[in-house]
Amino acid sequence: MATLKQLALKKDLLAPGHRLCAGCTEPSIVRQILLASDKPVVVANSTGCLEVSTTVYPYTSWRVSYIHNAFENAAATASGIEAAIKALKRKGKKIDDYNVVVFAGDGGTYDIGLQSLSGALERQHKFVYVCLDNEAYMNTGIQRSSATPSYAWTSTTPVGKVEPGKKEPKKDLTLFAVAHNIPYVATASPSHFMDLIRKVEKAFSVNGPAVLNIIAPCPRGWRYPTEMGIKIARLAVETGVWPLYEVEDGKYRITFKPRELKPVEEWLKPQGRFRHLFKPGNEELLEQFKKMVEKRMRTLEIMEKATQED
């Protein structure tokens, strides 16, 4: 595995000067993933913050090949690229070995792109699908998605007199990906960069599809100061809100196990979108949130134990 020093010597494949917001965690994640690739990369990007901020015509931030097709079909587009590579090689054309990578937000993955993703995973195309999960439609102005956690304020789940923000729990996209019997699925966080790089390398190495679901804190949507992005990501991991784990050929492994999880409040409190959870009368909501975090962690531990033994 490449060390951080080695990666630091490589040329950045996402050029500086892109137009993502100050404090956005997406470019850090994208850079690390591109650097961790051992082969040239072709990127398929769904519509979203990353796309509109890195390809403003006539400029591009991408030093690798890149295609934006539409919102819901990055995985299908990647299927076509992978098919083209296979076919052209079969016909004797001189084609380099490429890593095909999708970058899509949670809207383009959990919601509108779910079918396209499912189809591409089931067809076992060799590509790495990266979901940059910032837990709402940030590009259009912080609307809720199925990745938005319970009780979060968004512009379409405002906190009102009768509604406490988003009422429904967050969809578990990682387990949805696991259900496709693909070689590799993992969660990751930009705060734990060595864990991230190791997972990216593994994702590129498997012979088939891999899904990386990566938490990507958004200062605008989550309502925290711009300098706190990586810290918020770290707190998500350390509180158990975003457990780091991988599922390799069906075997679960939790890749970050602190002796003790930090209280969930430490992750919630700095974020304005959860401010109302700390107001009198909402104690029950906070309890519910903590219970959901505990339950998921417990389930993961059971799955790890059950699948590592056989």
Binding site: N69, E72, T77, G80, L88, Q115, G119, E122, R123
Partner: peptide, 21 residues
């Protein structure tokens, strides 16, 4: 590529055509 919808069929051939196929 036996896709899961026509939307994905056209999306996939856009990807493959852009890749020179």
């Amino acid at each position: 590529v036996r896709v899961e919808s026509e939307h994905s069929a056209m999306s996939a051939v856009i990807g493959s055509a852009a890749a020179g196929a």
